[in-house]
């Protein structure tokens, strides 16, 4: 197994761990963190696959994809965080619905 393959495998493992977390954890914040772990896994896979180049210079296209992906992930995380706050503050005094107890992701 080459180094690149090892890191790519690590990325897949991170992805699986994150997926497990997002489904099984009940707290919304933990779900959100799990999603970010999944994202890191995918980015690691991309960077690892890019480093397989023989010439010593890694492929820049996956790097650009990772940068774009990180920006998207930041945006989505920020939106999710503000929603988590809104859910936990109980916005307009609405009766608490079926929230954190739900099991689905």
């Amino acid at each position: 197994m080459t180094t690149a393959q090892f890191y790519a495998l690590c990325g897949v493992v991170l992805f699986a761990i994150g997926f497990h977390g997002v489904v099984t954890r009940a707290h919304q914040l933990r779900k959100l963190l799990s999603v970010n772990v999944m994202g890191s896994g995918v980015f690691l896979v991309l960077v690892a696959l890019a480093s397989r180049a023989t010439g010593g210079h890694p492929d820049p296209v996956p790097h650009a994809m990772v940068l774009t992906g990180i920006v998207v992930a930041i945006s989505a995380t920020a939106v999710a965080l503000s929603l988590v706050r809104r859910v936990h503050e109980g916005d307009a005094g609405e009766a608490p619905g079926d929230d954190a107890r739900e099991a689905g992701p």
């Binding site: 699986a16 397989r52 996956p62």
Partner: peptide
């Protein structure tokens, strides 16, 4: 569910390992 996730991870891992270990991608074109 844990078994399911492990199967998923194993599948994706096998797919990653099946990729060519040395490969230049688009770096030469770029």
């Amino acid at each position: 569910f844990a078994v399911l996730v492990m199967l998923l991870g194993a599948g994706a891992g096998a797919a990653v390992l099946s990729l060519p270990p040395e490969w230049n991608g688009l770096s030469d074109t770029v």
